[in-house]
């Protein structure tokens, strides 16, 4: 992935990566610095290229939501299964809100694309059909740092600071 010189916004590459279908895993932490790990069903980069939305099941991830509300710092790894292209975004929690129609479209697109990749890699369609289809809640965060995590010589390098 090309590394633009400290852009103030998330790059086209990141937007395309998210839209092409990524597995999204989220880390937060509590007051004791105990890290929490959760799955987001897709993601969306907003038009401002700084706000990113995650989608969590309404019924789960209480610890993640509690951590976001109490501390707000968040790390998100996005991994495209078909070629292992991976980035980590770090930022701060903005808000928890119901999904709107743009969220539904972004979530559906990202999930459909990632499920197609998983099926092509051997995950049974019956498994993908059972991934949680909602209800989901939207969590917005403001991205601050982007790190390359694609396995290889550049893994771990900071790609951008917003």
């Amino acid at each position: 992935m090309a590394a633009p010189a400290s852009p103030a916004v998330l790059s086209d590459d990141i937007v395309r990566l998210v839209e092409s279908g990524v597995m999204v895993m989220v880390a937060t932490r509590d007051a004791n610095l105990t890290p929490e790990c959760s799955l987001s069903f897709g993601a969306r980069v907003h038009a401002d290229r700084q706000t990113v939305t995650l989608y969590f099941p309404e019924v789960a991830n209480d610890a993640t939501r509690a951590n976001l509300l109490a501390d707000g710092r968040v790390a998100v790894v996005m991994n495209r299964p078909r070629d292992e292209v991976t980035v980590q975004l770090k930022g701060e929690f903005l808000r928890l809100r119901p999904m709107d129609s743009d969220d539904l479209a972004a979530h559906t697109r990202c999930q459909q694309n990632v499920e197609a990749q998983l099926i092509s890699l051997g995950v049974p369609p019956a498994v993908c059909a059972r991934f949680n289809r909602g209800p989901l809640v939207a969590v917005d965060f403001r991205a601050r740092d982007v790190f390359n995590q694609t396995p290889g010589p550049d893994a771990g390098k900071r790609v951008a600071t917003l």
């Binding site: 932490r29 790990c37 770090k90």
Partner: peptide, 20 residues
């Protein structure tokens, strides 16, 4: 299936990474 690890620095910044 790849696993994931969440950690946190001493100054409270979480980190998340994939594990083969």
């Amino acid at each position: 299936i790849p696993s994931t690890i969440a950690t946190c620095s001493a100054d409270g910044v979480p980190n998340v990474a994939m594990l083969s």
